[in-house]
Design a protein around this nucleic acid. Structure first.
Lengths: 332, 332
DNA sequence: CAGCCGGGGTAATACGTATAACTTGACGCG
DNA sequence: CGCGTCAAGTTATACGTATTACCCCGGCTG
């Protein structure tokens, strides 16, 4: 009552195992007569034959499987990255297996063991460089998502035009008359944070103020942090630039609790354009990040690298979506 | 410049390949002297040896890998199910690979091919019975999540106490004086929906009204559906029972657009207790579903089944979380 | 009619591992 | 001293597949 092998199909069809493989491989047209090919196919279907992937992988020396390393799948952004990567992978007969969170909370230490599968390559998102070794990035073809392009270990980089997104935000807010800004960033230190912070500092010209607050990446964490920062009326910022829609939602809640109206008294912007951005009220002005495309390009890059083609592409463009959480700066 | 094999380690250490396997397998204490064991381990580390998982899987006839079938990973609920399953799996040296969405939008047709790995078992969530065959549930040990316990194909079931959740909601709302209800359900037909709908119908005694509306599982879809249903003042429900927090958020938005206050004019309840539930304002009264525990129990059940132990457990309890979206029924 | 070619199939092999079965000294004991 | 026992390795094999190299035979050509 064990699973049938290609040899079982062969004997049942009265041919050799090689013939079965030839037919089912579908790779050598004309190698087998149409008559026997049909017979083999019919027999295989009848027995419910499924090729043993472990054996095939061993024989071929490749598993057509990529490892995607993400901080947390419960973050909609990364779930969408996975979706995009998985779609492109499937189109090329590849699979994607996940390794959530190398920052400590992940399920296992060794992603190789955790993946339980030989890997052809790695796509790693927002990861500290020191984790690369554990991941095996030194051994396997590696594509980095949203990381420092100068980091040498990676075979290819896929980046979003974060700085340009920040430019669109600041231009929008400056045009609305805002001068006192607060940058609400995630507590985890990543290249993404540095890029955005640097862009923001550069873009805000003289005559402006900028404070930075960091908070855990949760609505409640952001609310708590902002309630503390917005309590005192003197010098209160009029615009809060958040690194994530989740933080922006928290900031809006804090404002409401303090009796501040959004956007009349306080403008708030987000990043990512998650489902959350249009679920809350007011709907968030935010930078739309095409997460699926990040996954798609990541996988495309990996496929190119695996074929030996060096891969490079311009940053993925991002666009500001103006909604209801931003408005003219209040006149004092 | 290819990856070293166990044989490479063996020759480098001056022992046989079997010895390497014996040492690294760590399974036969006293089989190899401590001296040579140390030598082998040191050599393996020096060469950067990693066992070829494909070969090991082939040899062992098991991949220690489970397939998790979920509708969409972008739904936080399922992302959390995955997280729970992956953690338990990792504790037992198992891996979890995903097959998102058999309802059509998934990356590939054949989950086996898509997984690119031989599988030891399947954990399937909210799936139509007809998809079972394609999944290979007839071939592999199968654990079903939130599905009809009477469905025979599954080796084990893991269910949430949905009916009890509905009971808690209705008792809460009835106590608040509500009599005219609207059940806002997802458009996809699942066992979960039927269970909840049936429970709701049963629990609402005489002297109550119940309407049912179905909508796509998005905030905007729910908002649109509700704007239509709430437009006419006559016979308007006072309580909206939603099958999902996402729908509840949409209902709240619809209410606000129509000038109705939540909870003063309209009470709204959700299901799941996603991050969204506390991100929106008012915070949602909702039934907390321990999603991670669903994943954990699913994996635990699969492990039991793989060991030949029949597995069974009571429904996972759920609890109503009372927040700000429900209040006393308005007096006409 | 000999030689050659190509269509259609088969036998053999290697991928890298885990383990069962066997070997070889050394040693204790009757 | 002979034999069983045991520790510490080694040899051999099988897992299921894809592919290479080979074989057989009928038909065509010179």
């Amino acid at each position: 009552m064990t699973r049938p092998t290609s040899r079982d199909v062969a004997t049942a069809a009265g041919v050799s195992q090689a013939t079965v493989s030839l037919v089912l491989g579908d790779k050598w047209p004309g190698r087998v007569s149409e008559r026997t090919a049909a017979l083999v196919r019919e027999t295989a279907a009848r027995l419910g034959y499924r090729p043993n992937l472990a054996a095939r992988n061993l024989r071929l020396g490749s598993t057509r499987t990529a490892l995607l390393v993400v901080p947390a799948l419960t973050n909609e952004f990364f779930a969408r990255v996975y979706t995009g990567a998985a779609r492109v992978a499937a189109e090329h007969g590849f699979g994607v297996v996940l390794y959530p969170s190398p920052d400590g909370t992940g399920p296992a230490r060794d992603p190789f063991a955790s993946a339980r599968a030989a890997l052809d390559g790695v796509i790693a998102s927002s990861m500290a460089a020191h984790a690369l070794h554990a991941i095996g990035g030194d051994t396997l073809p590696l594509v980095m998502l949203d990381s420092d392009p100068r980091a040498g270990a990676a075979a290819a980089h896929v980046n979003l035009a974060m700085a340009d997104g920040m430019r669109q935000i600041t231009e929008h807010l400056l045009a609305l008359g805002h001068r006192r800004f607060l940058h609400l960033a995630s507590a985890v230190d990543s290249w993404t944070f540095h890029t955005r912070a640097e862009a923001l500092t550069t873009l805000l010209g003289p005559g402006t103020e900028l404070r930075t607050v960091r908070s855990p990446l949760t609505v409640d964490g952001a609310r708590t942090a902002m309630e503390a920062s917005l309590a005192a009326p003197e010098g209160r910022p009029t615009a809060i630039v958040c690194d994530d829609d989740i933080l922006a939602a928290g900031a809006c809640k804090a404002a409401r609790r303090l009796g501040l109206r959004v956007p009349e008294d306080l403008s708030v912007t987000g990043f990512d354009d998650l489902a959350l951005a249009t679920a809350v009220e007011p709907e968030l002005t935010t930078v739309h990040l095409p997460a699926e495309r990040v996954g798609e390009q990541g996988m495309t890059a990996l496929l190119a690298v695996l074929e030996g083609t060096p891969w490079t592409a311009p940053d993925i463009p991002v666009t500001l979506v103006t909604r209801d959480s931003t408005g003219p700066a209040p006149t004092p």
